[in-house]
Structures are given as structure tokens and as C-alpha cells.
Design a protein around this nucleic acid. Structure first.
Lengths: 206, 206, 206, 206
DNA sequence: AATGAATGAGCTTTCATTCAT
DNA sequence: GATGAATGAAAGCTCATTCAT
């Protein structure tokens, strides 16, 4: 990569990072492109060299941040291996919830904007060259290990994702209707139930 | 009610109805107060006699529309009585999904804006004098009939609501990852499972 | 005066009083006719039955308040009679400055809006029926007593009024360039000097 | 200075000049920012690149115009040197009154808006780089020449300024209570008197 | 006489986008 | 590639005034 390209990448990242900070503190609507450019230290016109408009940078950010979320969870899983498939899923779910508790601005930003379309892209293509061990890779690995034992793995994952993210939102951000810590047992129990519905053979207990 | 008050109510409703049409066709952000007033056939200033700003009318609309959704479902339930508690819930869930399939603009509008806060208000207070048979009433009736047999009814309902609404969104609007009709059996099975988790005594089968 | 007329007068005074409070706290520009009517407890339309517009009520207020200022000063003078003509003037000047120190909102309101035109009206006509012992009366009494000894009494009074009011403004409100108490000796000395310029025969010292 | 900066300065001046014309003909309140921008031949948004709001441009104008007034008077004084200190002051006072008679719109604008705060700024700092021979310089020169002979020069100047400006206002604009030409002798006499109050040693007559 | 709902022109301000430099 | 001055449409909101009741 040439020095010029490096500088370009640096500028792009600076814009992304600044946009994220502003989006999560002031909200997407109240953040202007001027704000982003000013704080990133580039001219307003320069913004348009890297992104089409605010929606463009927003979508790229959501994908990027969601991917990071999963990546971290999978990394953690590798450090603390779990026996059964169900335990692995629960571990990942728990880890992601904990990350979101720590970073509520991120939760607010992601879930107000996440759509299945963006998510699907992550799983099936992944941003080229971004992460070698992205969601796509992790997902494929899981399928290769357990896929044969699952009825409709895609639907199952879709349902777990939607269920967990939507059910955690309010308890984390507003402690409503209960604290997230009090809800966790309920969430895990339901996730286990969902998985069981799709397993041809239950997890083996040794 | 005097003739003046009648006219006021009429104007208020006209503004609400117009706002809903514009919000669901153009989106909230792209709808200006001018648009609403123009199309409702009143002056811009008149809008501000009835609502504080766009957020105000939006929130009032969401509550109103969500309430209607549940009301219709409960009405239908009364016409086709179901035996067990679980069957009743599934019936309502199914009915609401069907309504949303028929009225996707409503789904788009509601779910982008619904928050547990608004929802809670509906259940626990209800807009006074609006509907005698609102969500609040329906909810109370259910609790009085089955509540004793449930472990944490509120959490259970919260989880079912979040699960159903989040999981149905994408299939209805974008047919992703599967058609809603193909997902329905999965949804119902999981709802049954969730309910079972909270029942002290399972539904009686006669 | 009939009961109806009484009520009307009451309403008028209520509007005047409310307007004054709002003008002096929020400023004339930031006070709307709605504000005045609301707070005076009458309908917006009623305002227009008593005053032409905001400028009308403003002018009437300035005249009224200025007159009160002089009236109080003259009253005080009668309780503490002064020997010479000059001493009387100084006494009145001092009393008015003290009133304005006590009521800075009044100073701000009056001097931003007072014009010689309004002032002249007070002296030469007086608002009919408002005060029997108004500025006009006081002014005439002074002229009748000392007028023969003065070269151009009107010009003299004009100059003293303008001098005192303009020179006191900033020291009272902003303590700039000096405190009003420190400026007073300077003011009095100059007022004495101005009077001396117009006296045919100096004050007699007994 | 680059061509761009030149154009910017030009635009700024165009806005200032246009604002002054509108403020003095229609009044500040009745002049909208649209008016200013339109007539200056720039877009409304452009106004906000140069000034924060209407108050901002108004204050900048008052300072600027007041400074010009004094500058001209001091220039004239240099062409017609006066012997004594008092004569110099009277000369300047007379010159300024004459300027205001010629430009009554300016008088209307300045004196309705001038405050001691703005004035003080002019004397003690002056806008950097604007005028080499501004008020500040003129003031300092006077002090260096006569200051030792004056008791409280600042208070004296404050009183003269306030006296002259307030006393001239109505006669110039409304010929009330007398014509300015008829009032001038009175004004000058009083100014002489004020000065005399502060001089340790009277003007020498050769 | 009193009301207050309705009006709509008009205000200030923002901001995505363009384009000459 | 980068800049940032300029644009001008469009937004939200206010408020003096009218007029049917």
C-alpha cells in the first residue's frame, strides 16, 4: 500500500470514527455532515469523496460495529471453550449482552438501525479484506460442526438473533420491565428451548 | 359537546389521519408539518394548536394505532373462542400478524417507533375515555383468568411481544430470510414453548 | 361610574399592569400580546378592545410610569420643603435617581423608550382625569413661583432632564464608568451650574 | 491577501453597508436577515457565514459608525487648530452635531442603540488594524496634553458625551423643544461650564 | 362586550450539495 | 485530491390580527 493510499485510509477511518462518536452522542438526525467533517479535521467537500451521504456512512458503520460485536464474542469463546453446541450459543449470547451493557450508546445506535438486510450481508459476504475471522467465517465453522444436527439452521439463528436483541433492548437501556440481570435466566432458558426445537439429536451429556 | 368542540375534534382527527398517511408513505423524517397541515386542509399555525410538534403527534399516533391492533385481535378472539390459554395467545398473535401483513405500512411505522415505554402506558393506564375495551381491559381479563397459573406473567408477555414483533418484521416486509407463512409454524411453536415455561400447570386437554 | 364601567377599568388596569411586568422582565420584543392577555386573564381578542396594538400599550405605560416617578418626587418634596429653587430641583433629581436605583427594571424600560414627545404630552396636557396633581400641575406651580426669575425655563428643564437621565443610566444599571453614588456629586454640581446659567437673580441666601 | 480573501472582505462590507441602509430606513426590528441578504445580492445562508445574527451585525455597525463620527471630527479639528482645550472640545462637539444634522438616520440608529459598553470598547481598545487614528488614539492624545490639568478626565468626558448626545437628539430629529441651532449656544455654554468644573487651572487667555 | 379558534405571512436558522480554486 | 465559500430550499415555529359565535 502506497503512502497516498495509507493517508486515504486514515482519512476514511477518521471520518468513520468521528461519525460514530457523534451518532452515538447526539443522534444521527442531529449530526450534520459539517459536524463530522469539522471534527474529523477535513473539509466538508472531502466527505463526499469517501461517502455518498449520511445514510451511506451510517450503514457502513452499523455493519462494521455489529461485526466487531460478534468477533469479540467468538474470540472470547475460543478462550473459554464450551462443551455442547447449546452452551456455545448461550456463551456468545451472554457475551454480547454484556458488551452492550458496557456500551449502551452502541446498543442504541445499532438496534435503531440494524435491519436483517445489513445482517445478512455480514454473514454471507463479509466486508472483503476487513477481518479474516469475521462473522461469515465463524458462522460457517459452526454450521460445519453442528449443521448436520440442525433442522433449519438459518431460521433458528434468525430467530435467536431477533429474540435476544429485541428482548434485551429495553431492560439494558431503561431497566424496563425488569433489570437485564433478572431477565437473563429467562432469555437463556428460551434460547435453549428454541435450539432444542431444531436439534435432531439433543446435546450429548457425558 | 358544543358545535365548536365537535369541529375541534374533527380537526384533530383530520390531522392525525393525515399525519398517519404521510408518515407511512413518506416516512416521519421526510414529512414536514407543512405537509400535514396542507393536506389536512388547515393552516400551519393550526397544527400547533393541537400538537406540540412532530414528535408529539407521532407518539400519539403510535399509541393509538397499536391499541387498535390489539383491540381488533381481541374482538376477533371473542367471536372465535379458544379453549386453552395457549390457544388464545396463539390466536391473538396470528391475528395481529395477519393484520400487519395486510397493512405493512402500519408495521413499518409502528415497529420503527414502538418502545416499551409507550406500550406499558397502553397496558397500565390506557387513554382515558378512548376505548372501553382497550388493551388494558383485555390484559386484565386475561390475568384474572389465567394469572394464578403463571409464574411471572408480565415478563412472559413482554418476551412474547418482543419475540413476535421482532421476528415477524423482516419476513413480512422483505420476505427475508423466509416468507412469513413459512415462519409462522416456527413462531407458534416457540410461543407455545415460552408459555409452557411459565405455566405452573399445563393447559388441560379434555 | 356604573358597575360595567368599573369592570372595564379593572380590565384595562389589569392589562397595563401585566404588560409592565412582562415588558420589564422579558423585554418588549419578547412579550407577545398573547402573553399579556393570558396572564391578565382575558381573551386575546379582548386586548384589542382596549389597546390598538403593542406600541399603543407601551406608550401609555411609559407616560404613566414616568408621571408616577415625578409625582412621588414632588410628594416627597412637599414633606421636606427646601429653601431655594435650586435646592428643590436637586432634591427632586436626587429622589428620582434613588427611585430608579430601587427599580432598575423601570429605568431600563423607561429610558429605552422615553422620547421627548411623550414627555411633552405629560407636561402640557396630562392624561385627563388620571391625576389631579400630575407633572403638569407641579410644573406650572414651579413656573409660577420661580418662572419670572428664569431666562428660558423650558429649555432649562429640558436640558436638566436629558442630562440627568442620560448620565445616570449606565452607572445605575452597569456601575459604569463609576458607581451612581460616586457620580451624584458631579451630577448635582452640574445641575446647579445649569440652573445658575438661567437665573436672572441667583438664589438668595438668607 | 489572496483573491478569495478580498472577495470575502468585499462581501462582508456589502452586508454591513446594506444592513446600515435598511436599519436606518426601516428600523432594526422591521429589517429581516432576508432583506439584508437579498439586497446585498447574496444568499440568506451566506449572511450566517459572516455574522452570528442580527444583533451581531447591529453591534458591529454601531461601533463602526460611532468611530467614523469621531474620526471625522478629529480630522476637522486638525485642519482648524483651536487654541484652548475648551475650544477644542467645543469644536468637536459642534462638528459632531453638524454631522448628525446632515445624517439624521445615523443619529436615529446610533443613539437608539449606543450603550456605554460599546463606547468604552472604542476608547480603550479600538478595533485592531481598523483605523490608525481612531477614537482611542485621539483620546490618548488629548489626555497626554491636558490630562494633568483635569480632575477626573474620564468622568468629565462621560458626562459631556451623554449630555451632548441626549440633549441634541430631539431637537435634531423633531425640532423639539427648540431647533438645534437655537439650542447650540445653550449646549456650548453648559459644556464650557462642565469643563471648568474639572480644570485645576482655567484655560489661559493670551 | 367578550371570546378564542383559525389564519398564514413571515421569521430565523440549518444543511446537503456544488464547484471554482 | 482537497478545499471551503456559496448556495437556497426547506424546516420549525411565532404571533398579530380577524371574525363567527
Amino acid at each position: 500500500m502506497g503512502r497516498v493510499d495509507e493517508k486515504k485510509l486514515q482519512k476514511r477511518n477518521s471520518l468513520l470514527q468521528t461519525a460514530f462518536e457523534l451518532f452515538t452522542t447526539k443522534g444521527v438526525v442531529n449530526t450534520s455532515i459539517s459536524d463530522i467533517a469539522d471534527r474529523a479535521g477535513v473539509a466538508k467537500g472531502t466527505f463526499y469523496l469517501y461517502f455518498k451521504d449520511k445514510i451511506d456512512i451510517k450503514n457502513k458503520l452499523i455493519g462494521h460495529k455489529t461485526e466487531k460485536l460478534f468477533e469479540k464474542a467468538v474470540e472470547a469463546l475460543e478462550k473459554e471453550p464450551q462443551k455442547t453446541f447449546t452452551d456455545k450459543v448461550i456463551f456468545v449470547v451472554n457475551n454480547i449482552i454484556d458488551q452492550l451493557v458496557e456500551n449502551q450508546a452502541l446498543l442504541l445506535f445499532i438496534s435503531k438501525n440494524l435491519s436483517w438486510g445489513i445482517f445478512k450481508n455480514l454473514i454471507y459476504s463479509g466486508e472483503k479484506g476487513t477481518s479474516e475471522q469475521g462473522i461469515a467465517a465463524a458462522f460457517e465453522k459452526i454450521i460445519s460442526e453442528e449443521g448436520d444436527n440442525l433442522e433449519s439452521p438459518e431460521i433458528m439463528f434468525y430467530m435467536i438473533c431477533e429474540f435476544v436483541s429485541s428482548v434485551s433492548y429495553s431492560p439494558i437501556l431503561y431497566k424496563e420491565p425488569v433489570l437485564i440481570d433478572d431477565l437473563k435466566p429467562h432469555i437463556f432458558r428460551t434460547v435453549r428451548n428454541i435450539i432444542a426445537q431444531y436439534q435432531k439429536v439433543p446435546d450429548k451429556t457425558e
